[in-house]
Structure formats: C-alpha cells, structure tokens
Amino acid sequence: MATNDHQATYADIAPLRADLALALRAADHHGLGEGICNHFSVALPDGSDRFLINPRGLHWSEIRADDVVLVDGDGNVLAGRHAVEATAMFIHAAVHRVTGHAVVLHTHMPYATALTLTADRTLDTTLSQGAMRFHGRIAVDAQYNGLALDMREGERIARGMQGREVAFLANHGVVVCGARLDHAYEDLYMLERACLHQVLAQSTGRPLAPVDEKLAAFVAEQIQGERLQSELFFEALRRLLP
C-alpha cells in the first residue's frame, strides 16, 4: 500500500523517473525491446532497498515518467499506478541487493541473445573495438533454468555475476548494470552493436582476427577512463526522444 511518505518520495524523484522512461523509449527506438517484456530498474540513491522499474503491460515506446513504479525489495508497490511483473522483481531485486549495482537493465535484444544460444554463450571481447570495451567486465551464466519465478533463481543469477557489470544468460538474454543510468544505457547499446558485428563476421564463414588479450584490456581501460561520451549520448537521446 502506497503511503504519503512514499508518494512524496515519488514526486521528489521525478527527474530519475523521467530518465528511466527515456532509457526505455530509447531502447525501443534502437530495437532492443521485446514487446512488453523485459525491464529496466534504478535504485533510489538513499541506501534503501527501494527502486524504480517499468510497469507490467506497457510497451516501452509509450512509457512516461508517471508510468514508472516505485517498489521495495520484497516486490511491494510503494507508489505508481501500475502493477509489476513477477519475474522482473525476482531478477532485479536480487541483482540490486547482491551486486550493489544501482542500475539493472535486462533485455532479450536480438544479437546479444543470439550469442547466448551458441556454445560460447557470450561475446568475444578480443574482436571488435566495440567489444573490447567489455573486456574483463562480462560474466556468463551457462545454466538455463526456465523462467525466473522465485527469488532463488534471481539470486543464483545475481551471485553468478560476481560483481561484474554484464551477464550473458544462457538461452535467455543479457543483464547490463552500472552506477549511472546514462553510462549503463550506452553500455547496453554498444553491447548489442558489438554482438551484431560479431554475428555478421561469423556469418561470412571466414576466419576471425582477434587481437591479443593485453591490447583488449588496454582498450577497455581507455574507454572506462573517459565516460563523457556516454553522458553526451544520453543527452542527445533526451533531445531526440522528448
């Protein structure tokens, strides 16, 4: 049951709700969504277990700030006018709690998901420059257990991430996390681009040409050391998708 205190908090965090709604609309714009499935969530910056998440039943293209729902770690809706889908709570609440990441983006975006269906399960971070930004940042969950319909499955996924920011979930999709929404969203977008490039390269049937691990790690460090590009990208999306 929503209380006046939670409603006041909901009003105070209108800019954060607006940014989460923007990220969802951008993901639809970039072809990363899947109907009304999948979820983005952002923890409140107050140290509580409360976080914002997109509601059940709305297409990402139509979500606005007032559609975003405030929930607690037990799945109780604290503020907002919509319900929240069960699997969203089990995955997102666990990842926020176990990893400590403020932002959790879960999608079944096409090319990244395609790689979870292969024997390798994941992106090769020694191939394209775009893939190198993720070198050392990816965890692979090689065990598919069906829909995440209980907290144990969510916690298994979260613990398997080992604190890393990206997880490839076998036969399922991906999770991209971070401390900031703009940084995490650009990572999500760039991850799908890197997966697209790898799938296209593999489709030629010609031998691939990876770089050595040391160079891939150096490129990852270069990109992580300067994230202004991520912030400018999100500001451009704010102009393009008001």
Rank of each mutant, 00 (worst) to 15 (best):
L200M: 12
C195Y: 10
D72W: 08
W60N: 00
L237R: 06
Y144P: 02
I53Y: 09
H197L: 15
A139I: 11
V166N: 00
Q162G: 04
G173E: 09
D150K: 11
D141G: 02
G35D: 01
R238L: 07
N4T: 13
A14H: 12
E62T: 04
I13A: 11
R56Y: 14
M190T: 10
R164C: 03
E155D: 14
G75N: 14
R159F: 01
D12A: 15
Q198M: 04
H30L: 14
S61T: 05
L22T: 00
Y185A: 03
S230A: 15
E221R: 07
R50A: 12
A216E: 07
I157L: 10
R239Y: 08
E34R: 02
L44F: 10
E235M: 05
H108W: 05
F90M: 07
F90H: 11
A26D: 10
N76K: 15
G33L: 04
R206S: 08
D46I: 08
F233S: 05
A142P: 04
H6Y: 14
H108P: 03
A21L: 07
A27L: 03
R180F: 01
H197T: 13
R56M: 14
G160T: 07
A94C: 11
R159Q: 13
A201G: 11
E221Y: 05
Q202Y: 09
G57R: 01
M190F: 12
G35S: 03
A148F: 13
L20C: 05
S61E: 06
A27H: 03
L147T: 07
G178H: 11
A21C: 06
N145S: 11
V175S: 00
E231S: 05
A112K: 04
G154Q: 08
L149S: 07
A79I: 12
A194R: 15
D46T: 09
G35Y: 02
